[in-house]
Write a protein that binds this DNA or RNA. Sequence first.
DNA 1: TAGATTGTTAATCGATTAACAATC
DNA 2: TAGATTGTTAATCGATTAACAATC
Lengths: 264, 264
Amino acid sequence: MATGRSTQHNPNPAGGTRRSRGRGIPDATVARLPLYLRALTALSERSVPTVSSEELAAAAGVNSAKLRKDFSYLGSYGTRGVGYDVEYLVYQISRELGLTQDWPVVIVGIGNLGHALANYGGFASRGFRVAALLDADPAITGNVVAGLPVRHTDEMEEIVRDERVSIGVITTPPGAAQQVCDRLVAAGVTSILNFAPTVLNVPDGVDVRKVDLSIELQILAFHEQRKAGDDLADEDGEVPSAPAAAVVSGRGPEQGHGYEEAAG
Amino acid sequence: MATGRSTQHNPNPAGGTRRSRGRGIPDATVARLPLYLRALTALSERSVPTVSSEELAAAAGVNSAKLRKDFSYLGSYGTRGVGYDVEYLVYQISRELGLTQDWPVVIVGIGNLGHALANYGGFASRGFRVAALLDADPAITGNVVAGLPVRHTDEMEEIVRDERVSIGVITTPPGAAQQVCDRLVAAGVTSILNFAPTVLNVPDGVDVRKVDLSIELQILAFHEQRKAGDDLADEDGEVPSAPAAAVVSGRGPEQGHGYEEAAG
DNA sequence: TAGATTGTTAATCGATTAACAATC
DNA sequence: TAGATTGTTAATCGATTAACAATC
């Protein structure tokens, strides 16, 4: 949501309905489990033994009805009149998310962003292990980043195979992303986190999630514009639906304020 | 969001129903407009004059029914039997997203990630202008990053005011994020893009979107685990709902494979 | 006119929410 | 028992999708 940020293909790789297998968990719920887990981990570090749905929801930034509904998909892990046992819930959510096992990941493209991710602390603490850093540029390979040597992308297939890597992170320039993706998938990777601003095409059974700074900013700009518009009279004053022919020659005011009033 | 990335508070700051004002556009549609815009820009660069909903949808990674429905919220910008004029649609979507005006942003926290964002090309090309880079560390202030001097956070309020900054990007450590957020908001910022793994509390009227690497990876791990489980018999073999009392003492196997079979 | 493709309708599906019975 | 809080139900809402009439 990206979401926001969102799976490009195969949000539900098992196919069929959204909750096909056994106690299937809705996508929206899965996306919130990490939020709950983070809040619970903070409580755990403060040695808080139990927490109510109301308190935990506040800490996670959701409402309590949603939280209880989400937890109901996992099972009945609370105690009526008491709340949830923090440690127990940390474990159950971790298990559900697959974080009780070790996930080797490779990061491909060690520019500024790859560098930042390699140094990101949240990796190791949550069951993810950086198996290798890869780059195609000989000027970069051999450098040590975050304690790891940057290896050449020539070694990609070997590393993915030997280290049983199933998750790849792509931080290359957009032009290289699809090719890197293809090679990762061919080598056995089945989940891709894509930071390159490109749509990746992948075969069935491969999950792609993307993180796109530019998209997030554009969504903010949209709402920001709305706010600014609300300050004026009423922005929806029937902008004439200009006939296409009249605009084909130029694309209209680029950075200017042709049709609309300034929003600042 | 995203999630996916997702607005924490006020996904619809105008309040009321999801589509309150005039020709209000659903959140899901707004989140896809940047995708269409990117695909259209690529077509524009190749001097493609028109495109059908089918072609454009394929390029953007969505289905064509959804695309046409999305565009219908913007107006009737297509021509039956022909398709959409690329340049005209680029302009209309840009205008709808507020990209025909200039958005000054500040980036607070110039570590690895802030550094990466400052160098990110997608910024400038889409109406966003980095008005300032800020950091609290005197060892970092004064450095030139992406052609801009890193200024001290002491100057935050002055810069936000003078440059009319309404969008702030937070790339600080999690412990500093809320305080930075509070100061940005107090200074006049009304949209925040948060890369720190913290829930930010903001007053009504302020939008927060967050980008969280760790959450994206955890969602991938969940699906990855499912895939692995599908290879075995049937993973849903009634894991006994362990009584809370039995687990309170320890949190169960941490990185181990206590309850579950290995998924690799 | 015939072919192509949009814009819209209506059905379906998933997500959210409030309310409350169950029960600790 | 009385108070507190979960887990679930049912209503509502938003998003997706296929189909097709409108129309270029």
